[in-house]
Deep mutational scan, measured.
Amino acid sequence: QVNIAPGSLDKALNQYAAHSGFTLSVDASLTRGKQSNGLHGDYDVESGLQQLLDGSGLQVKPLGNNSWTLEP
């Protein structure tokens, strides 16, 4: 069960990665100043990332080996 409060997208993504045990490689300029609506409930990694990114204009991309990145 994930419980991440709304706020900074950077912070939300870092909390989610730490909670879910995956690696997220992101260029900080992509997420700077963006906000997230947070995340509450049970999600697989990709669904949770998509939910956190909702409205940010960013997309999640798998890199393999439980690693992910973001792209515009």
Rank of each mutant, 00 (worst) to 15 (best):
P62N: 14
K34Q: 06
Y43E: 03
R32C: 14
S67P: 00
P72F: 10
A5L: 11
G38Q: 03
P6S: 09
Q59R: 14
K11F: 13
K34G: 02
T69D: 04
N37I: 09
Q50A: 13
Q1T: 13
P62M: 12
D42N: 14
S67D: 05
H40P: 01
Q59S: 11
Y43A: 03
L39G: 01
P62L: 11
S29V: 10
T23C: 13
L39N: 00
L30I: 08
S67K: 11
L58T: 00
S8M: 09
L58N: 00
L53A: 05
Y43D: 02
S8L: 09
G64K: 04
S47K: 11
Q59T: 13
Q51Y: 09
P6N: 03
Q50G: 08
G33D: 10
H40G: 03
L52I: 09
L63F: 07
W68E: 01
N65M: 09
D54I: 15
S29P: 04
G48M: 05
T23Y: 10
Q35S: 11
K61I: 13
V2T: 06
S56I: 07
V26H: 11
L24H: 03
A18W: 09
G57M: 05
S25C: 15
G48P: 01
N66G: 10
L58I: 06
N14I: 14
Q1V: 13
H19W: 14
A28P: 14
Q15F: 09
F22Q: 04
G55W: 04
G38N: 03
H19S: 11
Q15K: 07
N37E: 08
T69K: 10
N65G: 11
G33K: 05
A12Q: 05
Q59G: 08
R32Q: 12
E71S: 08
D54V: 15
V60C: 14
D10W: 15
G33F: 07
N3P: 03
S47V: 09
G57W: 04
L9R: 02
A18E: 10
S8C: 14
L39I: 08
N3G: 03
D54R: 15
S29F: 10
D42E: 12
L9M: 05
Y16V: 01
G55R: 06
D10R: 10
D44G: 07
H40W: 11
I4W: 02
A12D: 02
Q59P: 01
D44P: 07
S25Q: 14
G7P: 01
Y43N: 03
D27I: 08
L9G: 01
G64R: 04
N37A: 12
D27G: 05
K61R: 13
L49P: 01
D10M: 13
A17K: 08
L13P: 01
V60W: 08
T23H: 11
S56W: 05
Q51P: 01
Q50T: 12
G38Y: 04
S47T: 12
G38M: 03
D44L: 06
K34N: 02
D44C: 08
G55P: 01
L39Y: 03
T69F: 08
A5V: 07
A17N: 03
E71F: 10
L13E: 00
G38A: 04
S47W: 07
H19V: 14
H19T: 10
L53G: 00
R32V: 12
T23G: 06
N37V: 09
D44A: 07
L52C: 04
D44H: 06
L9P: 01
Q15E: 14
S29A: 12
N14Y: 13
L49D: 00
R32S: 11
Q51K: 14
T69W: 06
P6L: 04
G64S: 06
K61Q: 05
N66K: 06
L24N: 01
Y43T: 04
R32W: 13
G48C: 04
L39D: 03
V45K: 04
S8K: 07
D44N: 09
W68K: 00
D54A: 15
A18S: 10
